[in-house]
């Protein structure tokens, strides 16, 4: 069975989700639950840290697609940070960088939320 987990952190109003392992059609529901949890808590500013994410399939990418519009409508966003090159390639192959805010580091993603708020 694919090994995948999500853990939660906060930085001010920003919720940070650390993804670990392999995100596929079997484990995508775990990411979905994690984002649902943020939504229930009223957190709309979410950073997904992919430093320990070693694999992603379209089912995993689909979770981001399902939530992003609603979070943006509520003034938030999902920013994706620290992806490994192999995983970033999959995002890139499907054109995700055109529609999603993907940053090299988590700090950059946090600062972009700060900039948006002060604007």
């Amino acid at each position: 069975m694919s090994d995948f987990s999500v853990s939660f952190r906060s930085n001010g109003d920003v919720r940070i989700l650390d993804l670990n392992g392999e995100l596929d059609a079997h484990t995508a529901s775990e990411l979905e639950s994690a984002i649902e949890k943020c939504r229930e808590e009223g957190s709309v500013q979410i950073i997904v840290n992919g430093k320990q994410l070693v694999y992603i399939s379209s089912a995993g990418l689909g979770v981001f697609m399902a939530f992003i519009e609603e979070l943006r409508e509520r003034g938030g966003d999902i920013k994706i940070a620290s992806l490994r090159p192999k995983v970033y390639n999959v995002f890139d192959l499907l054109g995700f960088p055109m529609l999603f805010d993907i940053t090299d580091t988590e700090e950059e993603a946090v600062s972009r939320f700060s900039t948006t708020v002060s604007d």
């Binding site: 089912a59 990418l61 689909g62 697609m65 399902a66 499907l94 529609l99």
Partner: peptide
Amino acid sequence: DLATFVRQKKSGGFGVHL
């Protein structure tokens, strides 16, 4: 089309494309 899928909040349907 990714942009359309995002607007429609669709979570799947691009496995064949990939």
